[in-house]
């Protein structure tokens, strides 16, 4: 199912799906909630033991696990609640100031 709703704000009443049905699954994945963050989780992979507590406690499905390996964070959706850092038994995750982290990202890519 493809459903392009990028210009929905301009849609006439004739264009919407009948009855306000959202005709496609999981469209919220397109929506960035990462902008809510004031703190950003940083992973120290050396300390990580792949216990996956961060994965199972994350409210935002923002822990990326591939092939039984914790890969990091989905920063598009992570809201920076800090549950992962708080629950990590090895202190492998630390929360850092989002603005500073952003500045570092920018200077690194510059």
């Amino acid at each position: 199912m493809t459903w392009d709703y990028s210009d929905m704000g301009k849609w006439s009443w004739k264009k919407h799906p009948r009855g306000a049905v959202i005709p496609k699954a999981g469209t919220a994945h397109d929506y960035k909630t990462g902008g809510w963050r004031s703190q950003r989780p940083i992973l120290d992979k050396e300390k990580c033991i792949n216990c996956f507590f961060c994965f199972i406690y994350c409210p935002d499905t923002a822990i990326i696990v591939k092939d039984e390996d914790m890969k990091g964070f989905d920063l598009k959706h992570c809201k920076g609640c800090g549950i992962c850092a708080h629950e990590c038994p090895k202190d492998a995750i630390t929360m850092v100031d989002e603005i500073k982290a952003k500045q570092q990202d920018e200077s690194a890519s510059a």
Partner: peptide, 20 residues
């Protein structure tokens, strides 16, 4: 838990529940 990480996620990120 490592098995659960391979299962289907039915709820995507991008929802607007409060952080935490």
């Amino acid at each position: 838990l490592k098995d659960l990480t391979k299962n289907k996620e039915w709820l995507t990120g991008g929802h607007r529940m409060c952080a935490g």
